[in-house]
Design a protein around this nucleic acid. Structure first.
Length: 421
RNA sequence: GUGAAGGUAGCUCAGCUGGCAGAGCACUGGGUUGUGGCCCCAGCGGUCGGGGGUUCAAAUCCCCUCCUUCACCCCA
């Protein structure tokens, strides 16, 4: 048996880097005033079909949907924004001081063809800020992600930035775009022709060269933004600049969720190949209402943990290692093993990280383990020492050792542990 | 869902014009019986991804299937 396709195990040696990332992220989020939110792993299917949108790939072909024993249709969470919005509504958070700012670290599930940086179960770090129309909040939210990347040393990322307009300006624009596409039908790929009706904006994302050529001369949403949207867009940019966040405007940037309005953005990492998006998001002013809540604007993003780690490690990030034990206990005989086990207990009870042998290894073998473990000390319990109530304390790094009372050795190790912090 | 490349020891891989399944690393033991790292020796370890077929004989050739990787697509 192996892990299901597109999933993977996170082994003990993989954990320190993930823990480190989560801690760095939590620290950044705290500085910006975001509180952690957790929601169930699965939701009623209609939350996503209504929230994310029936026309999206996610809803059409990528959801893990099942019927529970009560005959309800449930879906493993494919994205974080809709569940966060649902929780906002369910708990009446619109009565809280606005905006409500939350962050999450959640597994997501999508039925997709796996490849590196793309999994059927993956983790996302994300933030959502609900309740404010302010473009300054868009800029803050983007600033949080920028700060996170900076905090963890993820350098080579580029921020792409666009506006999707609002209900008022998008409709006339898509009509205009649709007629443009119809006029150039003959020069478009099959797919672009198909999605012309349902989702004409997607054609901007098409990679077929002749489609791109056509799209180069297509009308741009940027030129059709209503006054409010244009002003909003301008103000976000200004506040990105105030934070020293560099970006490139990309009118081709079209993201996969139907709920986006106005601001959309994506950070791309050059060393990730085809799956270059490490994090992205935008504003969603109609989502909360769409899922049955009071009209409430929102803005947020999600960033893939696997992709962050991939980009980081390909960029030659230093290894994050788990803390080595302070001491490794070495016993040379059966009675010595009992004493060593007792000493290990005493040390651990006093807050010290120690380890010892369970494989009946030879003394040489135990010493080898001690060295390998990275411990500062080998605490050696031998028969001679046992007679005298003593132990040998070996300073592994210095290859020096001394014989002393067991209690004194324990105190030395405790002191060392306390001083390393 | 489509196309391509790959799956051999825990890991990285060699072996692939069919003929006894290999190396390095890792792991365990030892190098005169109480001392780690370096070095040396030995040992452990494999349904050759799985199933079927061709053949006296298949890791090797053929078919199917699963998984991984790359690209499309989509996205984080």
């Amino acid at each position: 048996m192996v892990a299901p396709k597109g999933t993977y195990d996170i082994l003990p040696e993989d954990q320190p880097q993930r823990t480190w990332l989560l801690e760095r992220a939590a620290s950044v989020f705290a500085r910006y005033g975001y509180g952690r939110l957790d929601t169930p792993l699965f939701e009623e299917t209609r939350l996503f079909s209504r929230g994310v949108g029936e026309s999206t790939d996610i809803v059409r072909k990528e959801m893990y949907t099942f019927e529970d024993n009560g005959g309800r249709s449930m879906t493993l969470r494919p994205e974080g924004t809709a569940p966060a919005a649902r929780a906002f509504v369910e708990h009446g958070m619109h009565t809280r001081p606005l905006p409500v700012k939350v962050w999450y670290y959640w597994p997501m599930f999508r039925y997709e063809a796996p490849q590196s940086g793309r999994y059927r179960q993956h983790f996302q770090l994300g933030v959502e800020a609900l309740g404010s129309h302010s473009p300054v909040l868009d800029a803050e939210v983007i600033g949080v992600l920028h700060a996170l990347y900076k905090e963890i040393g993820l350098m080579r990322v580029e921020l792409r930035f666009n506006s999707m307009g609002c209900r008022a300006c998008r409709r006339p624009y898509t009509d205009r775009l649709r007629s443009f596409l119809q006029a150039h039908q003959g020069d478009l790929c099959d797919e672009c022709r198909e999605r012309m009706d349902l989702n004409p904006l997607r054609s901007f994302d098409c990679k077929v060269p002749y489609c791109r050529e056509v799209m180069d001369s297509a009308p741009r949403l940027a030129d059709f933004l209503c006054e409010e949207c244009a002003e909003h867009h301008h103000t976000v940019k200004r506040h990105l600049e105030l934070q020293g966040v560099e970006f490139v405007e990309d009118h081709r940037l079209v993201r996969g969720m139907d709920y986006y309005t106005r601001t959309t953005f994506e950070f791309q990492a050059a060393n990730l190949g085809a799956q270059s998006g490490v994090g992205g998001g935008g504003r969603y002013d109609n989502l909360v209402e769409a899922i049955g809540g009071p009209p409430t604007p929102g803005v947020g993003w999600g960033s893939g943990v696997e992709r962050i780690l991939l980009a980081l490690n390909r960029g030659g990030a230093p290894e994050v290692r788990s803390r080595a034990p302070a001491a490794y206990l070495v016993a040379v005989s059966a009675p010595a093993r009992e004493t060593a086990f007792g000493l290990a207990h005493d040390l651990r009870a006093r807050g010290v990280t120690v380890d010892l042998d369970f494989m009946m290894r030879s003394m040489k073998g135990q010493m080898k383990q001690a060295g390998r473990s990275g411990a500062a000390f080998a605490l050696i319990v031998g028969d001679e020492e046992l007679q005298a109530g003593q132990v040998t304390l070996r300073y592994l790094a210095e290859a020096r050792e001394e014989r002393l009372a067991a209690e004194a050795a324990v105190n030395t190790i405790v002191q060392w542990e306390e001083s390393r912090g």
